[in-house]
Structure formats: C-alpha cells, structure tokens
C-alpha cells in the first residue's frame, strides 16, 4: 500500500514539475494588461508538415481546386510578363 501511495505521489509531482514552465499558476495573478502583453509577444510560428492522412477530397472538390490552381497559374504567367513589385515588403 505504501508503494502505491509513493507511486501516486511521484506521478503527481512529476506532472506538476512538467507543467512548471507553462505559466498557469503565475498567470492567475496577472492583470488583463499583463496578460495582453504576454499574448501579443507570443511567436506563433510552428510549421507543420502535411500529414499523409489529410482529409480525403472527392472528385468534385478536387476539380474545384484544380480549376482554382489553373486560375492562379494563368495570373502568374501574366504577372511574369509585367514584373511584380510585391516582394519588396
């Protein structure tokens, strides 16, 4: 029984330490302004690769996307003839 209690306590302690850097506890005492400051500086940049099991699309949706792609390509071709200035951002 003692072992069982020790294992349980160790697990909870482990979970608490694993969560220590997520600001959950600290965050509760922050004011709205302080939270906004934290939020506005978050670097949202996780890049995710396309998964193999992405939502399968039926033929109709694929045809719509293909047509949209061809519209893009035709525009790209016309833009190549007149040099774009947008990349100068």
């Amino acid at each position: 029984m003692r072992k069982l209690i020790c294992v349980t306590l160790a697990l909870f302690a482990g979970a608490a330490f694993a969560d220590a850097n997520n600001q959950t506890v600290q965050g509760q005492s922050l004011s709205v302004k302080e939270r906004l400051q934290v939020i506005e500086l978050i670097n949202i940049a996780a890049e995710k690769d396309q998964v193999a099991n992405a939502e399968p699309l039926d033929a109709e949706l694929l045809a719509i996307l293909k047509k949209a792609e061809s519209l893009e390509e035709s525009l790209e071709e016309s833009l190549e003839e007149t040099p774009a200035t947008e990349e100068a951002e």
């Binding site: 939502e55 699309l57 949706l61 719509i64 996307l65 792609e69 525009l75």
Partner: peptide, 23 residues
C-alpha cells in the same frame, strides 16, 4: 481563385466547405 472557391463552396454542405477551404 478565391472567387472561384467561394462561389463553388457556397452551395456545398458545411463539412465539404471545411474540406475545400482547408485544402
């Protein structure tokens, strides 16, 4: 292409709209 997608998506069921727009 945005025009094409939106005009074709408008008559789809919500689940298919999500799939189309997501892709």
């Amino acid at each position: 292409s945005l025009r094409h997608i939106l005009l074709r998506a408008v008559d789809l069921e919500p689940e298919r709209q999500f799939s189309l727009i997501n892709r």
